[in-house]
Design a protein around this nucleic acid. Sequence first.
DNA 1: AAATTTCTGATTTACGTACATCAAAAAATC
DNA 2: GATTTTTTGATGTACGTAAATCAGAAATTT
Lengths: 354, 354
Amino acid sequence: MRPTVHDIAASAGVSLATVDRVLNRRPGVRAVTREKVEAAIETLGYVRDMAAANLAKSRVYPLVFIIPTGDNPFMRGLEAEIAVAGLRSPVDRTRLSVLTVPAFDSAALVEAIDRAVSDVPAGLAVVAVDAPEVAAAIARARSAGVPVVTLVSDLAASGRDHFVGIDNIAAGRTAGSLMGRFLGGRPGPVAVLAGSMLVRDHRERLQGFTAALSQDFEPRVILDVLEGQDDPMLAEELVAICCKAHSDLAGIYSLGAGNSGLVTAISAQGRPIRVIAHELTSHTRSALKAGLIDAVLHQDAGHEVRSAIRVLKAKADGVAVIEAQERIRIDIFLKDNLPLEQAGDVREPIGRDD
Amino acid sequence: MRPTVHDIAASAGVSLATVDRVLNRRPGVRAVTREKVEAAIETLGYVRDMAAANLAKSRVYPLVFIIPTGDNPFMRGLEAEIAVAGLRSPVDRTRLSVLTVPAFDSAALVEAIDRAVSDVPAGLAVVAVDAPEVAAAIARARSAGVPVVTLVSDLAASGRDHFVGIDNIAAGRTAGSLMGRFLGGRPGPVAVLAGSMLVRDHRERLQGFTAALSQDFEPRVILDVLEGQDDPMLAEELVAICCKAHSDLAGIYSLGAGNSGLVTAISAQGRPIRVIAHELTSHTRSALKAGLIDAVLHQDAGHEVRSAIRVLKAKADGVAVIEAQERIRIDIFLKDNLPLEQAGDVREPIGRDD
DNA sequence: AAATTTCTGATTTACGTACATCAAAAAATC
DNA sequence: GATTTTTTGATGTACGTAAATCAGAAATTT
């Protein structure tokens, strides 16, 4: 049987109340007594039964997610997954709420963080914007005792407790490596379609892509980045122009959103172009199946949300996280390993979307 | 606040004891009364607080894993991950035990299953062997009230509650697709190195590989399967012979174990051969880095073990599982997206291993 | 040594459920 | 209608922890 507080009390020769004071850092315990208790905890290998503790406290974990507004399908998918996770809230004693703020607006994000912190939630998950004032706001949250994880987009300088998301440099390198192998000896330049070079994730993906493609393969021209603002219409236009300008275009790496425009543009081309894109959506899925896209790199929003919740609860309890379990993987989908379509999958609106 | 048994009792106009009888299927409740209670449960949306219930019952979940003996590194990795998960047993109220049986010995497996069932564990995870008597044993376990999941190797005919593992046909297809793309227009036959065609997983991988490679790419000769018995020495010998016999050998798909022998054989070749293998181990990792292997398909044993535990607990409680969370993914590793090496990773003995 | 402050013990209630016991009520049987 | 059987209610204890109260002991200060 695992030891209980009673065993600790008996073993340390103190009362239950004192053990409780030590465990919950309540005042009124001499240093020597505290050490006796801690020694007993150590030798007996006591671990607090969180289920019983939470029951006694009737504890709930109010968790706040702060994510960007706008029609970025990945972010909307994230929001949907938070809603799905919310259905399980009664079971896992969480209470999830979502704040949305304009994308890339660091002032608004800072305000949202401060507002969220003011009702002392059990944890905070933030899609970070790369700005010093945001880092400062996160640091404030933590010094107010609120655990913070960054979600999708990291901000290591903030001292956040954990980052939930993929390694974007590795994602870019993977894309570059796949592109190099898929192209084989075939000549011709490669284009890169991004949302905006102002976004850290996109910069990192580009960096990894360029590095892998130029390091491990024969020299190849990488054209100037097309910034499609994650807008399908603009993406389509830019890609079409690019195809016209480069009749020998061999491949395209789309590292942001707006892929439906990309697909429209390349399907109009009568020549094979290798395409690697990000995020599995209904569009990229069907383009994969049709052979218009060769590979899709993907991060699973559901996993990210569940991981954020697990990590925040663990941090709130001061418990260690299982690192291996919380590593968010870069999924590589070909048309041959597509997962079955599910109800919760990202579905996009007609016309303007990913 | 979520409703409790007290709310149900009040709402149904019955006593707490009666609610308890209904909830725990104890006798002594008239059908009409039971229906009243069930209606109240329904309308109030009551869900039993499992944490409190488990506390009251001081319930533990004894779970039994049955896996093959032998030096198959993947299976040993699985065993190691079970041990790691066992460290968390006090926290999640499980008690894990492992039975090992000779590989592919269905009689021994049946005996182990029956033995395990005889002390009525809360659940059973079995690396299944494809035989009718095994299916029957699993069916017996289930009708004895013991939830069963198949692990790594499925046996759908058994009526098991759940399968924890990858889709091996999809894995083979993925390998075929990657091989086709990696080879591009380059001519030459492709070899397949398997453990044994008696194993269902290996058969399925081969099937998927052949289908994808012949369906989506120019015609290519796939040589007769080399059966290396998952033995590095034999694998090395077979591959060396094959290379000698086919001077234009373009690629090798290694769908089983014994990869260290494979690597030795191909590194002796002075020509580039595309290689796709299974399972990330210290050997395949370093071969990836060295460029001797192009891609590794991987299933994460830690995830599989944790998933099996979650699913079995859920089945034991009669609770729904989160399907999306329990899907075991096929990881595709290139040298560019290798995860950091960790303490729990599969390390192989010198000389004879994967 | 007395007064004060700080620590510690003993005890109780609570969280939501499980489970057992015994009495009382209702239904079924004769 | 009396008896037996079945169903229901009332109540208490337990699980492991949290949190509060109050009395008493120990340490510190005067």
